[in-house]
Every structure is written in C-alpha cells, then in structure tokens.
Design a protein around this nucleic acid. Sequence first.
DNA 1: CCAGTCATTGCATGGGCATACATATGCACA
DNA 2: TGTGCATATGTATGCCCATGCAATGACTGG
Lengths: 136, 136
Amino acid sequence: MSKRSDSWLRLTHVVASIEADLSKTLQRKHGLGLSDYRALHRLSLSPDLELRMQELAAHLGLNQSSVSRMVERLERSGFTVRDLCPNDKRGVYTVLTDKGRTCLESAQPDYEAALAASLKDHGCEDLLSAAFIKAE
Amino acid sequence: MSKRSDSWLRLTHVVASIEADLSKTLQRKHGLGLSDYRALHRLSLSPDLELRMQELAAHLGLNQSSVSRMVERLERSGFTVRDLCPNDKRGVYTVLTDKGRTCLESAQPDYEAALAASLKDHGCEDLLSAAFIKAE
DNA sequence: CCAGTCATTGCATGGGCATACATATGCACA
DNA sequence: TGTGCATATGTATGCCCATGCAATGACTGG
C-alpha cells in the first residue's frame, strides 16, 4: 500500500543488482572484492596513501572488524602494508603499496565502465543526478 | 575524479545505512530479518498467500538457495508452511500461516515508521520521489 | 531417453556483534 | 608534583549469520 516502502524496495533492488554487477566484474577481471577496491581507492586519495583502520571503516561504511579482516586480505595480496602509528601505539596505518596502486589503476576503468553499463542496463542513467539534485 | 562513481558511492552508503536501520528495527522488535519480512509481505500480496520458491526469489532479488534457507527459517518460526505443488511435483509452495500474517501485520507499522525516520535522518526525504520521477 | 526446470545441500565468503587486549587520557588524591 | 586508577579508544579475534555458486537429485515435457 505504502508508496514509500514500495519505491524503497525498487530502489534497493536496483542498487543491490548494480552492486552485484560491479562486484562480479571486479572479481572476474582483477580478483578484487568491491570493498577491497573501494579501500584501495580511498587509500589512493589520502595524502600519504595511508589511513588508519577506523578512518577506512568510516569511509567505507563498514564495521571496524570487517575492515581489519579486509586489510588482512589486501595485505596478503600485497596491495597494502600495515605500519604502526608512531604517536599512538594503538593505531595502525594501512599503506597502499606500488602493487596496490597499480592494481587500482588497472581496475578503475573497468569499474567505471561497469558502473555506467549497469546503470544503463537498469534504466537508471539519471538516477544519480536525480538523487543528488539538492545534495549540497 | 569521476562524478558518477562518486555519487554512486554516496548513494550506496545511504542505502546500506538505511537498510541496516530497518534490519535492526525488525530484528529488535519482531525477531525478523529484512528479507524475511519482505518475504512475508510478498506472500501476503499473493492471491492465495502462497508462492513458489522461484517466484519468491525473483521478487526478493535473492538467489534460489538463499530463499530455500530463508523459507526454512520462516517455517521454523511458524510463519509459513511448505506445500507440495500438485501439478508439478518439483514445485514447492510456501504458504503464509495465520501466525505469519499476524506477525507481518504487527511489523508493518514499525517498518514503515523506521523507513520514514531513517530517510529523514539521512536527509533523503525526497530521494525516492527524485529517484522515480520518470519511472513509468 | 534427454534436455531443461525446480528445490535442496555443501561449501566458501564477507559482514556484524561481542569480546579481549593494548594503549591513552583524565582525574583524584597524597 | 607525581602516582595510580578508571575510563575511553584502537585493533584483532571468536563466533554466528545471510548470501552466492556449484553440484545434486527429483521431476517435467518433448
């Protein structure tokens, strides 16, 4: 009955479907999960190519423990290294490696392309502009 | 750089956050998962309060196997019962029980309220209307 | 009899919550 | 001033859950 929850359902389906597309593309072409890709991306935007776990978690919208394990994955793949924070011995920096940067750069075009294609596939080419008309 | 992927990221974060809110509300107040709630809802819309696994999967945007296990959960809680399809012995109907209908009816107002509140919290009160301006 | 369809099941994965542990910080009190 | 304790913060780990994929088994229809 509620128009609102009905629209919400549609929106979530579309978003989930597109996210799945992106995830599969990244996995297939680069062996990278969606969160992993986004983590690399975030790191690449950071001045020193490094972020603390919490910052990463906040940026990605993930739980702190999930990030801890994600970083473990990234580190196993050689895309990042952990670096102890000198000032605060509790803190841990995750630093993007050259390999990580290279991987990101190779994945980025595929990600962008897949996003554009998937949006189009779902007839949502103007969803993003519509969604953020008034955002800031 | 890409404005598109940037907006997409924002959108996914908002959606994920709201979905998490909804999920927690349902879990806390009714012991129901988000997919479970939506399954009950779909079933309630069906003429005979029943759907086959595949139909349910399609409606929910979930994998067939996920639905199979979800129905297992619902059945354990007494919200649905399985019913063999007479014409096609491969098929299985999932039928909403009275208990299931009751549970859904009690959860529905909370779901709607939580959705409205969460949308508001995220400053997305007009996201839905914006998103579907041109949809049909 | 064979190809396609439906549901279930084994397995792997990513995520969250609660907890543990190390460190930091602030505060009370002598 | 300094010491010690309580509390807060940062990360890692154990556990559980929902989901997807692939394989299986039952059945259908040509």
